[in-house]
Structure formats: structure tokens, C-alpha cells
Design a protein around this nucleic acid. Structure first.
Ligand SMILES: NC(=O)c1ccc[n+]([C@@H]2O[C@H](COP(=O)([O-])OP(=O)(O)OC[C@H]3O[C@@H](n4cnc5c(N)ncnc54)[C@H](O)[C@@H]3O)[C@@H](O)[C@H]2O)c1
Ligand SMILES: NC(=O)c1ccc[n+]([C@@H]2O[C@H](COP(=O)([O-])OP(=O)(O)OC[C@H]3O[C@@H](n4cnc5c(N)ncnc54)[C@H](O)[C@@H]3O)[C@@H](O)[C@H]2O)c1
Lengths: 254, 254
DNA sequence: ATGTCTTTGTGAACGCGTGCACAAAGATGG
DNA sequence: CCATCTTTGTGCACGCGTTCACAAAGACAT
């Protein structure tokens, strides 16, 4: 999971579990697709399949929002779209700033999926004087000197960090000091923030490493299965060479 | 967490919990930084702080890998780097293909963080004939006609999908049919894959929506606190207007 | 009005992940 | 060799999330 929130102690938000909140956008996307096809109602079973989750889980998730279904029929699509949107706070517009307009920042700025759900790119900010004034995705890049002013004037509370990792923490600090209370961080850095500020991270490298782990495991199992079938007699030795600490490391501990 | 793996039933990989696996890359990053500063050993407390986790959790995580620490001293940095790398399968090179070389695909191709950890961009693939032959990040984009051949010849088992959502499933199907068993999906689509194939997704839009939820909650709490202090008498009415289903929806169910 | 049939909403059981707290291990100094 | 001090490794308890399974609710037909 490319995610990681920072600190949310006893105060679980009005009883809606975090795991449920994380799935609401998934339901919303599936419901929006149904809505566009003018489907009036949908059962938990159908919607769960579309969202790729268990139907019991979906029903329990919805039960935290209230009793919005009709037994024997299902859920009213339009009504649910509205309820979930409201719950997620998407009935209002959220101005967002992107800091660090390089490869990734520019790609994000060009991404149409932002605006479609109540998020509006209020400003693009970069420290490079060469970038200032340039148009990216139809928006003029502004120099980071004016960061505080930009945040303040646009009432921005959500910031996206796509700077190099080395400066991510200081950019984060400035954003927080300027009033930003939610940060989406693409830099491979552990950000520390004061209480009350949410940080989520998207880390490509971590995702790939997790995939590699499972990939290796699959390859290993395959090899084991083959070896096991071919030469059962050597099993003891094989196992010894493959155990948790069987390999001789390149570097030994002191 | 912008994540979501697909199906992993009873077979928990050699007893290493999924949550632990997801943190190993985090530890590895922190350890690599220490290694570059030639720090010989590190305590669980220090390393946990650097990785942004609880020290007990870190020790428990490491205990799944084996007893690699020394009581009273801590962990040997180089040794741990090696052990975690080996566990994650990063001691071998993983050829990766990126399919869909648009804004995002190009940004990923240009990203240096790939190669640094055993991942090698083996090929860039796009369906647009205009793209074919063009150089992106020093690699020639190839047309998707040759997808199967490319996968096969390079022994690719990890694929990254950065195509528009509408074609993501069919691209996924082709990748899987060609032999890819791990997929990192950036398209906002629920991919269905056969057993034995891992899918992880990175979904920017979901991350923002989760942030918006908490942001709204913070704003609401603030408003409630103010209102509560200012006018306790109106509390009952206020509460009624703010309850789980207090708002009148734009669309009513049938 | 009554019965049937579909589907929700949820009680309950279970398993996983987290964090506390501490005994054991080993380093270090005398 | 012994005492002290640091830090690991883990037993244990707790809470969250998931899933099963079913009673209750309502639609719909007769
Ligand atoms: N490109 C990817 O696919 C990718 C993938 C995963 C993670 N990342 C991470 O995302 C971040 C950005 O990646 P990128 O490839 O776009 O890098 P990049 O070098 O292309 O862009 C970084 C931008 O940040 C700007 N910048 C530097 N310091 C700044 C500051 N103090 N304030 C404001 N702006 C500043 C630079 O001028 C530059 O335009 C990096 O941390 C990278 O590790 C990128
Ligand atoms: N750009 C972002 O920041 C961003 C953020 C979140 C999600 N996404 C998602 O990532 C995906 C890519 O986004 P983008 O902005 O790069 O889009 P894009 O339109 O710039 O790029 C898509 C590329 O895919 C290629 N393509 C289309 N069909 C293909 C096929 N069948 N086989 C191979 N290639 C094909 C197109 O030729 C194009 O080059 C989209 O699904 C988008 O929703 C993008």
C-alpha cells in the first residue's frame, strides 16, 4: 500500500474506520461509472464486484454512513454518489498547490483527473528561477519565494510535494507554517509534521520492491517444487542451503 | 496507502507478514543513508526514528528475518542492508516494462530512482505509432504490437501500466498472457487478474480524496468547537443539522 | 392481505497488526 | 570473574478489520 498517515490517536473521525474511508473513493468511482450509464440502482453484490471488494465489507462500510439501501432492491446510485461525495468532502472545491515542477510535478499538473473530483490546481511552485513564469498545463509557474502568499491568498490547505528528496522536509515545513494541513508526498523521504497535519505518501520505489519480494517468492516456490519432485533425496541439503539464514552474507557482523 | 494487493490466501510467504514486507523498503532506505555516512551500527531506536516507525515494531519486523542484532549494541548496518536486500529480492536485477508513454509514463521513465535498486527499464511501450522510435530517457519507445516479443526476450516479469484507464484491462491481459506476473497500475481502474499475479495500484485521486475527508473533518471540528463555545443553547439544533443524515440530499431515493 | 423472494444491515467470531513491558543476552569496565 | 548497563527479542494483551451467516425488511405477485 503506497500509503501512510501520520498520527491519528483516539479520535477516530465520527466512527468511520480509516479502512472504510480509504475504500469510499473506490465505491464512488464505480458508482460514477454506473451513474453515467444511467443505472438507477445497484446491489451490494454488483457494486462490490465493480469495486473489487467483498460485498459484506461494502455493506458494512455503507452502514457506517447510514442506512441508505433498500432491502430487496439495493442502493440508489445517484443518492449514494451524493452521500459519499458529501462524506469525503467533495461537494466543495479544494485548491491544491504542487511544489516542484519537474518531470513528475508537470505530469501531475497535466493530469485531468484532478479537476474531475473537486480538486483544483491553484498554483504551481518551483525554486528554479528559470521555471518561474513558464506555462505548465496552462498555469504559470510561480517562484517559491512567494509560497506563503500563494497559500494564504488561495486558501490552500492541501499541498503536493514533488521536489527532490533532499529539500522535501524544508518545503514541507514551509507549507505547514503557511497553513497547509494535508500533504501528499511523492519524494522518498520520511516527513515529520506537527500534530493535526496529515501526510500521505506515494512511493513508487517501495511498490516495486514489494512486487519484487513476491516475485522472488514465486520463483523460489517454483524452483522448490521442481527440485522437490526431481530429487527428494537431496531435500535435507537443499533445505539447509535455503533456510532463513542459510546464505553466507557478503559482510559479517562484528 | 495507495495500495491494494489482489488475493493472497493462506500462503503467507514464509511467515513474513505482509505489513512487515511493506516496511522493509523503508528500513532499507534509512539503512542505505546510514551506510553512505559510514555508520557502522545502529540501534532499533535510532533506525526506527529514521524510518518513522515504532521501535518495537521494527524489532519485531527484523525478528521475522532472523536474529541479526547484537544486544547492548544494535544492528550492523552493512549486514542488515544485505539481509533486507536479499529478502526483498534486490540482489538480482528486475527488468521492467512501462506501457503507455504519456505524461506519467515519460516521467517514470526519466526517474532515476528505478535503477538505483535493482530495477532496470527494459522497454517503453506505446500504442501510438507517432511515439514509436522516439527516444524517452535515452530509450527508444517501441510499438505495442511487439509487446509479447519484448516481454519474452527480456525475461520481464514486472510491468507498469500508465495507459488511459479505458485500455488498462486489455493491456493488463496482454501483459499477463505474455508472462508478466507482477503489475504496478497507475490507471484508475480495478484490474482483474488470474491467481498468481500480483497487482499493486497507485491512485493519486484516491489519496487526495482521503486527505480531503480528513481536511473536512478538521474544519468541521473547528467549527463545532467554536459554535459550541459561542452558543451552547443552540447545541441541540446544531447537532440535528449536522448528524449523519441531517442534510437533505439533492436527489432522493425512490 | 398474505406469501414469497431478494437483499440489506449487523451480531459474532476470528485473525492480523501493534505496542507494552520485561527477561535474557551480551558488551563493557573494574 | 563479576557487576552493571544497554539493547535486543518476544510473550502477551488489545483493538481494528474482515468475513460469515442470518434475521429482518421491504418489494412484488397473487
Ligand atoms: N519522476 C518520477 O517518476 C518519480 C517517481 C517516484 C518518485 N519521484 C520523486 O518525486 C520527486 C520529483 O521527481 P522528478 O523526477 O520530477 O524530479 P525533477 O528533478 O524533475 O523535479 C524536481 C523539481 O523540483 C524543483 N525544486 C528543487 N528544489 C525546490 C524547492 N526547494 N522548492 C521548490 N521546488 C524545488 C526543481 O527545480 C525541479 O523542477 C523526487 O523526490 C523523486 O524522487 C519521482
Ligand atoms: N499524469 C498523472 O499525473 C496521473 C496521475 C494519476 C493517474 N494517472 C493515470 O495514469 C494514466 C496515464 O496518465 P497520463 O497523464 O500519462 O496520460 P497520457 O494520455 O498522457 O498518456 C497515455 C499514453 O498511453 C498510450 N496508450 C493508449 N492506449 C494504449 C495501449 N493500448 N497500449 C499502449 N499504450 C497506449 C497513449 O498513446 C499515451 O501515450 C491514466 O490512466 C491516468 O488516469 C495519471
Amino acid at each position: 500500500m503506497a500509503t501512510g498517515r501520520t498520527h491519528r490517536p483516539a479520535t477516530r473521525s465520527r466512527g468511520i474506520p480509516e479502512a472504510t474511508v480509504a475504500r469510499l473513493p473506490l465505491y464512488l468511482r464505480a458508482l460514477t461509472a454506473l451513474s453515467e450509464r444511467s443505472v438507477p440502482t445497484v446491489s451490494s453484490e454488483e457494486l462490490a464486484a465493480a469495486a473489487g471488494v467483498n460485498s459484506a465489507k461494502l455493506r458494512k462500510d455503507f452502514s457506517y454512513l447510514g442506512s441508505y439501501g433498500t432491502r430487496g432492491v439495493g442502493y440508489d446510485v445517484e443518492y449514494l454518489v451524493y452521500q459519499i461525495s458529501r462524506e469525503l468532502g467533495l461537494t466543495q472545491d479544494w485548491p491544491v498547490v504542487i511544489v516542484g515542477i519537474g518531470n513528475l510535478g508537470a505530469a501531475l499538473a497535466n493530469y485531468g483527473g484532478f479537476a474531475s473530483r473537486g480538486f483544483r490546481v491553484a498554483a504551481l511552485i518551483d525554486a528554479d528561477p528559470e521555471m518561474a513564469g513558464k506555462q505548465v498545463a496552462g498555469i504559470a509557474v510561480q517562484h517559491s519565494d512567494g509560497l506563503e502568499k500563494i497559500i494564504d491568498e488561495n486558501g490552500v490547505s492541501i499541498g503536493v510535494i514533488t521536489t527532490p528528496p533532499g529539500v522535501a522536509q524544508q518545503v514541507c515545513d514551509r507549507l505547514v507554517a503557511a497553513g497547509v494541513t494535508s500533504i501528499l508526498n511523492f519524494a522518498p523521504t520520511v516527513l515529520s509534521v506537527p500534530d493535526g497535519v496529515d501526510v500521505r505518501k506515494v512511493d513508487l520505489s517501495i511498490e516495486l520492491q514489494i512486487l519484487a519480494f513476491h516475485e522472488q517468492r514465486k520463483a523460489g516456490e517454483e524452483a522448490e517444487a521442481q527440485a522437490g519432485a526431481a530429487a527428494v533425496a537431496q531435500a535435507a541439503q537443499e533445505d539447509n542451503g535455503k533456510g532463513p539464514d542459510g546464505d553466507v552474507p557478503a559482510v559479517m557482523p562484528a
